[in-house]
Design a protein around this nucleic acid. Structure first.
Lengths: 127, 127, 127, 127
DNA sequence: GTGGTCTAGACCACT
DNA sequence: GTGGTCTAGACCACA
């Protein structure tokens, strides 16, 4: 399904959230599709079940998945997902900082535009 | 100089790093300019000196400033920046995640491109 | 594990770094082996935990260990070492200074060569 | 005469000591040759005179130079220099650590031997 | 349990 | 004055 990077500074449950989000956003996990159970994913990633639980709970809070007691965890339809302006602003600010840092690292506008294009194409493929 | 957001999930020293980075990248702090001393900034932000020093040390590690013991902390000239591939990859990955999140939040490619253009223009102004 | 020299001019955290580096380089601490936790080593050496953490963080920065929050600190596999030219140059310069000092202290080229050979053999043994 | 590296982690007075030691060891500054006066060197390096003073005093303590009141500071003849076993051991230990670190950074015995040879030749030239 | 952050306050070396 | 190190002790998030 995906790999964790223990060496990363990101905590494990954040990595799980981000990975699953990405699988949903790119459409690899489709609406209403069932996610692996907590215990199953726990075994797959050799990670403490509590950690998986915490990630699932946060994904639910953000509206990406919903849980049916006794059945499991499923991908929400897109319009159930929580989209608030605050979240958009957060992403924008992060994006802004990263763009500035790329400039600082020697990238120019053109470089960044083609980097973006690359990412668009990469997304096109997984969709 | 800048304000801290104590409610932020970012730690204080990270906020300091990001703020100073931005002041340097946008040219508000110029090459060889002296940063406030550890104690001075500590007073300005009412933050413990150790926290400031931690931020300064990390900025030094990343090549944004250099420190002369007994004199203070100064903005590095651009060519002394530590540009290693690892750093670039980190930014790329963050950028990638943000772009994907924007898609999820309802942005399309065109929206993102104009967002980028906005940022380029904003940068043009402060330069 | 090792002893600190409180009379040394080297700071405590530097001594810790150097000692652990040596344990790793000589293979006494093996790849993926867990280092003592911050608090544990703190107790072993009767040194403040902050000081240990500073050492661990620097070792991480240099690529000798990696940290998993909540789990502990582990020896990096050799290929994850951060080998940047800057680091090599630092060692070279130190080496150069030491060689020159040996000349000054009355050693000649042959003396230094056999000193080197001694060190090679010593290393052969611990490997 | 020589350049200081303000970005270095070494303190300024240590850099001055090391540089002058090297000039003496390599013979660029010859026995009985007069060193620049404190004020003169202070201007040359744009460094506080107290810092120069401190470096000269330490060089004197180590036996590299001697001071004649009212006349200046002169290079000592080699046999006046202070050579104690403790000093030799310090250098040896540093050397040992550096060699080990080179191994860790991917150098093998042969690499190190030729590195050494390089340094010998470099020294031959300045002598 | 683990690491990560922060404060308050002390002491030292260097400029 | 400057930065650098260290301690003691607190609180948080994560596994």
């Amino acid at each position: 399904m995906f790999q964790l990077d223990l060496k990363s500074r990101k905590s494990i449950y954040e990595q799980i959230i981000d990975n699953i989000k990405e699988l949903i956003i790119t459409g690899i996990l489709q609406t209403e599709e069932k996610l692996p159970s907590v215990r199953e994913l726990s075994r797959m990633l050799t990670v403490n079940p509590n950690t998986i639980q915490k990630a699932y709970r946060e994904l639910e809070r953000q509206g990406f998945v919903y849980t049916v007691s006794g059945l499991g965890c499923f991908v929400s339809p897109p319009d159930n997902r929580l989209v608030d302006q605050r979240q958009i602003n957060e992403v924008r600010e992060r994006l802004r900082g990263d763009i500035m840092e790329l400039f600082y690292l020697g990238f120019n506008e053109e470089d960044i535009r083609s980097l973006l294009q690359e990412m668009f194409e990469e997304r096109g493929e997984c969709k």
